[in-house]
Design a protein around this nucleic acid. Structure first.
Lengths: 356, 356
DNA sequence: ACAGCCTATTTGAACGTTCATATGGTTGTA
DNA sequence: TACAACCATATGAACGTTCAAATAGGCTGT
């Protein structure tokens, strides 16, 4: 039993290669009667066109590339899991596959683009972790490589909707604004913000949501200044920074991440024993769910779906030359929403000697 | 400026295609002098052989397939992140790439194998989430498809080292045994085990580690029976089940997962206020690190590295026909190790009315 | 009756490699 | 000198598909 190929199938059916090829790629060109006959034969033989041969001829691989960000940078952990799933599933439904690669810097990532493209192995890319001064998008635009970014083009921050490339993002600012407003509604007046150092795009965006909500509520710029802290991610660092916010009079804290929120929650417990800690995190990670921490959730599955939709549409366009249905939104900002939780009593122990 | 190809490069150098091909694939066949000249030209032109053409001719794609398990089944969250990273990085170093695909059942996964192979798009697979009655391994063996499994062949449990296929796994039982022994060393006598329902391979293995340690310490089978609970994963379910273990007199609890451990920790706090909860989880997830939960850590990066090593060796073998260096261990059980932590005081609040 | 056009199908060539084999030149041995 | 053996390089064919152009046949209109 030899491998079924276009020719072997054609011979056994008494038609030509091209007819079968047409049945697969341009069915309207084939007489319905013939078509049915060929389709039956295809199904019976289990024939599948060889990707390699097809790719060699058409110069399209139906493969999309995604760089796996170094751990603790970009999308990680369970967010990555959800993102990847949605990405892969959506791509698969459109006939594409997802190929992963690693790179330790943006420069290295660009080098890999060159490699992957020249080898004509990848049709387009999904970018994550966009940031200020991102050279990747410029490179891809310059080289006419189809791609979709998860993350706004932060350099065009004033008007990202004018961006030359397609992107999807989650409106983190709206999420932190909602969290802040919720605290205000509960009677809190001094609401702190625990964020990352300025310059990170996503981090600044989330801070801005908190800031504008406080400002709208009549809190002065000086006070806002006092109520914000900027530090690197981590539970311990969150605890330390939260102490400063508490000293500044904060009774509730909005955080840029779940890790920081976790640390902040510890300090709030100590400061206001018996009262559920007024803290919100970001990303709605399993950690947050586990300890009952309120958190701003990103519709990451939707974002992934849309990124693929945009990208595949772009790819279909360059092939067929323009037709191919309504173009999906090129610049899409999805709403983040606050997930409210009641903290569990995880731990009453004071960190002392030997345990496990 | 047209695309550089084997022919265009050959013409510009005044040699034949095959010579260049040889420089790349079998350098020893080419006269050093010519070789140097060709290599320089390759570097100068930035020439890269087309994957498609090569694949069409050689029938190898240098692509490895990995099924992305449905969320909350198999490898998830940050473990997946670490696993994927290591897998991708190692594969990349060997000249392979990782292609993802989704499947909602093992049957579906097998269907995709057929598709991926027939299209000759994938050279081999990495399997995760092996379980009792796994039909995938049988199928792959039957069809002579190279693969490496992360997870023992649970059906050959008596002697997995005799398995017909390559696998890597982590000795979870050794990890829980270590945890149990540690509690015994601290003076605990009634150490409970919070596990998944019987039948899950990995879960049973972890329970066995606890069980044999207790047995070795002289705890009778009846008592062991009383001290074990089996439930589905989750923080809440863990808390509920832990209550039963406490009622049975347990003072420490070894858990099959971090989620369950988190729930158990809650109950232990309530039962023994002021004393650090004697609980261990499994997987050493960020959740565990965040709340200061001791946990059994898997050397997942090593496992991934080894899986790729085994797989690529297998692939190289089928090509060259046997030569190609020492074969890596076909059946490898890596040790899991206990990471001891001191619980943080995360939460003193009692779960009551509205929060955040 | 025949050019002209449309439809359904076929044919030759090309995509860029590698395999198998052929060529030409040099060396070694009788 | 003749002939085999070897080395370095070159040539033809093949992998399985799609593109572009060619063919055959049916229908229309003058």
């Amino acid at each position: 039993m030899t491998k079924t190929t276009l020719v072997s199938l054609a011979d056994s059916l008494g038609v030509s290669r091209q007819t079968i090829s047409n049945v697969i790629n341009a069915p309207h060109r084939v007489k319905p009667e013939t078509r049915a006959r060929v389709e039956a034969a295809i199904a019976a033989s289990g024939y599948r066109p060889s990707a390699a041969a097809r790719q060699l001829r058409t110069r399209r691989s139906m493969n999309l590339g995604l760089r796996l960000m170094p751990v603790h940078d970009g999308i990680n952990g369970s967010i990555l899991d959800r993102f990847l799933h949605s990405l892969t599933e959506t791509a698969q439904r459109e006939g594409y596959r997802l190929t992963l690669f690693c790179a330790d810097s943006d420069t290295d990532e660009i080098r890999q683009y060159e490699e992957l493209l020249q080898v004509s192995d990848i049709d387009g890319f999904v970018l994550t972790g966009t940031h200020h001064g991102d050279r990747r998008t410029a490179w891809l635009l310059d080289h006419d490589v189809p791609f979709a970014a998860f993350g706004r083009p932060w350099d065009d921050a004033e008007d990202p909707l004018r961006s030359r490339h397609a992107w999807v993002d989650v409106d983190g600012g709206a999420g932190t604004a909602e969290a802040t407003a919720a605290f205000l509604g509960e009677g809190h007046e001094s609401i702190g913000f625990l964020g990352w150092p300025t310059g990170s795009g996503a981090g600044d965006d989330r801070r801005a949501g908190w800031q504008r909500t406080l400002a709208a509520a009549g809190v002065g710029p000086g006070r806002i200044q006092e109520l914000t802290a900027s530090i690197d991610d981590g539970v311990q660092t969150g605890a330390v920074a939260a102490r400063h916010l508490l000293a500044a009079g904060a009774t509730a804290i909005v955080c840029v991440s779940d890790s920081l929120a976790l640390g902040a929650a510890m300090q709030l417990r100590l400061a206001f024993p018996g009262i559920p800690a007024a803290v919100t995190g970001f990303d709605d990670t399993p950690v947050a769910a586990a300890v009952g921490l309120s958190s701003v959730a990103q519709p990451i599955e939707d974002a992934a779906r849309h990124a693929i939709a945009v990208l595949t549409h772009q790819l279909a366009e360059t092939t067929t030359g323009g037709a191919g249905g309504l173009a999906p939104e090129q610049h899409l900002l999805l709403p983040a929403t606050l997930v409210r939780r009641i903290p569990y009593p995880i731990d009453t122990g004071i960190p002392t000697a030997g345990t496990t």
